[in-house]
Design a protein around this nucleic acid. Structure first.
Length: 586
DNA sequence: CCCCCGCAAGC
DNA sequence: AGCTTGCGGGG
């Protein structure tokens, strides 16, 4: 029975005794194991030959190494659906081979060199395949694994002229308080390995991974070598952390020299025929780990080179992290066209877009390249929201996105405001109702002034003191809206007007009502909201203005009477009163 | 792109 | 306090 998946054997550690330990040659041992295998598989149920595998599903990296039922598809046979099945169905769950070191941060572009063998469902081979499979397993070498990837972004490549130090590459999983370092680990059988020598060099991000002219500097990097050399005894510590690795960039004109130097050191991990350095990306590198094994018997062996995640130069605008610092406003009409100033980290004016997003809805902020100011500010106009009939504020995300690599910034929230926050007046009427009932409770003040953007009109110092008063501008806004309704007659408009809390407030103050001149004309000293209201009245009601003064006397008296009989206006809270001065007072 | 400089943290 | 070192801004 072939259950000794290589990783299992490796993790188990002592499953295979070293050949020399038992006085056997490699060949003897292979024979022995194959025989064992035959015997056992003879006793077990016959297994159908494995179906050919041709579909590589997404989490292939963990193939054959997890028994967790997963919603993720795994490597499956041709003609079958992706099934989250345990690759070792014969084993009880508890004895499933341990999962290999996980690499959550590893992206699809990163890989651990050419893999020796597939580890998918084809690791349960047919009888004939079993023999060769076993052969390979016995000769299995340990492998080098990047257990802590370098942080992809955040480190600046430094020129030699900027000082000896070029900083230290941090680990990807570290945090501000708990910093980590990139680390590798020797996994698998290490018996009879005397020493492991690891050479770290820089290679290009893209395949084929060619030597990169930039240099590694820092601890364990011999001066001028551009590479890092560490030797480790895996019996003491299988793991090695790189505590001080910096990336020193070379000038473009020294690119050739640097590559030649690397070649002289015989560093070309993937034996790429180094040609065409023109397209070399100077802003991104990968660490490449080459591992040489020294056996006790003096033999030497090399493991396949392993590369890390890419590491991007922080300084380079073409690859740097995108970041929105702030906007001058975070709210705007759902109709769009709101002009916004955004401050951001350096961007390329020809390689950047501003993305508005909510659910599946996407739209772009509108700007030209000339609207990008010195790479750190963008003046743009908001796109209209998908729904122009929103009645509530809608929060959407704004992100910066680089066109070339589709990299995005962290999102920030932008709020779309409805055209008319209350088209059916439900809220306003409810509010008026509650305002009236709250009159029993004097001094009902808003806890804080409403933000300026929430008002459709300029606010003033005094007006915002009382929440009831704050309702005025928006109520007025609605009325402007209403006034466009041809079905609404003058009386209705006036009724609406008189229903607004501000008017109530005014009317409910006896000292005020008595001093209101017959031709109600809010003077310049009254808050600008009132001035505004006046303007709006004149603009929107036009011809009705005359009638208003006529009606107002009647209505005012009515309301004042009604109001006073219902609830005498509390006088103990002058700070919340609108203080309207008449011309006489001035 | 390459280099310079200044600030601030750490010793 | 004075120096080194890391880091970011800027020309």
């Amino acid at each position: 029975m072939v259950l000794k998946d290589s990783s299992y054997a490796m993790k188990g550690g002592d499953i295979y005794k070293a050949p020399s330990e038992r006085g056997l040659t490699d060949f003897d041992l292979i024979q022995e194991i194959i025989k064992e295998d035959r015997d056992r598989s003879g006793a077990s149920l016959p297994r159908p030959p494995p179906p050919p595998v041709d579909l590589l599903c997404t989490n292939s990296e963990m193939l054959g190494q997890t028994c967790q039922p997963s919603s993720q598809p795994v490597l499956v046979a041709r003609g079958t659906a992706c099934q989250p099945t345990c690759p070792f169905p014969q084993l009880p769950q508890s004895s499933c081979p341990p999962r290999e070191m996980a690499h959550p941060s590893r992206g699809p572009s990163s890989h651990a060199g050419p893999s020796r063998r597939g580890r998918g469902s084809d690791s349960i081979p047919s009888q004939s395949q079993g023999d060769t499979e076993m052969l390979e397993r016995v000769l299995e070498k340990p492998k080098l694994v990047v257990v802590e990837e370098p942080k992809e972004r955040g480190m600046r490549f430094r020129y030699e002229c900027e000082g000896r130090s070029a900083g230290s590459i941090l680990g990807a999983s570290g945090t501000e308080t708990n910093k980590t370092q990139p680390a590798i680990e020797i996994q698998g059988p290490i018996d009879h390995i005397k020493k492991v020598t690891v050479t770290v060099s820089l290679v290009t991000k893209d395949l084929p991974h060619r030597p990169h002219p930039h240099c590694l500097v820092g601890k364990d990097c011999p001066n001028g070598s551009g590479i890092c050399l560490v030797t480790m005894n895996p019996h003491n510590n299988r793991r090695h952390s790189f505590s001080n690795l910096g990336i020193q960039c070379v000038r473009r004109k020294e690119l050739d020299v640097s590559l030649q130097k690397r070649r002289n050191q015989n560093i070309d991990p993937f034996k790429s025929h180094s040609k065409g350095i023109e397209d070399m990306d100077m802003n991104v590198v990968r660490l490449c780990f080459q591992c040489e094994l020294d056996w006790e018997d003096g033999r030497k062996d090399c493991l396949s080179p392993v590369v890390s995640n890419p590491i991007y130069d922080k300084k380079a605008t073409t690859t740097s992290q995108l970041k929105i610092s702030c906007l001058n406003q975070y709210r705007g009409s759902c109709a769009g066209k709101t002009e916004i100033y955004m401050l951001c980290d350096k961007v390329q004016k020809d390689d950047i877009e501003i993305l508005f997003r909510r659910g599946s809805w996407k739209a772009n902020g509108e700007f030209a390249q000339t609207d990008v100011h010195r790479q750190i500010a963008i003046v743009f106009k908001t796109p209209p929201y998908q729904d122009q009939d929103i009645t509530e504020e809608v929060d959407v995300n704004i992100l910066l996105r680089r066109l070339s690599d589709q990299m995005t910034s962290e999102p920030i929230t932008f709020t779309y405001l409805p055209h008319n926050p209350d088209p059916y007046e439900v809220k306003r009427k409810r509010k008026i109702k509650s305002d009236i009932s709250f009159r029993d409770k004097p001094c009902v003040t808003a806890e804080r002034p409403l933000p300026a953007e929430q008002s459709f009109f300029p606010q003033t110092q005094t007006m915002m003191q009382d929440e009831r008063l704050c309702a005025a501008p928006s109520a007025l806004g609605e009325m402007c809206y209403e006034s466009q309704d041809p079905n609404m007659d003058t009386d209705e408009i006036l009724n609406s007007l008189l229903e607004t809390p501000v008017i109530w407030e005014l009317l409910s103050d006896p000292t005020l009502t008595s001093s209101i001149p017959p031709n109600f004309d809010p003077g310049a000293d009254i808050s600008s909201s009132f001035a505004n209201m006046d303007v709006n009245l004149n603009q929107n009601f036009g011809a009705y203005t005359q009638d208003f003064s006529h009606y107002s006397d009647l209505q005012f008296n009515m309301l004042v009477n009604e109001n006073q009989t219902l609830q005498p206006e509390p006088q103990d809270c002058p700070s919340n009163m609108v203080h309207v001065k008449t011309e006489e007072e001035l």
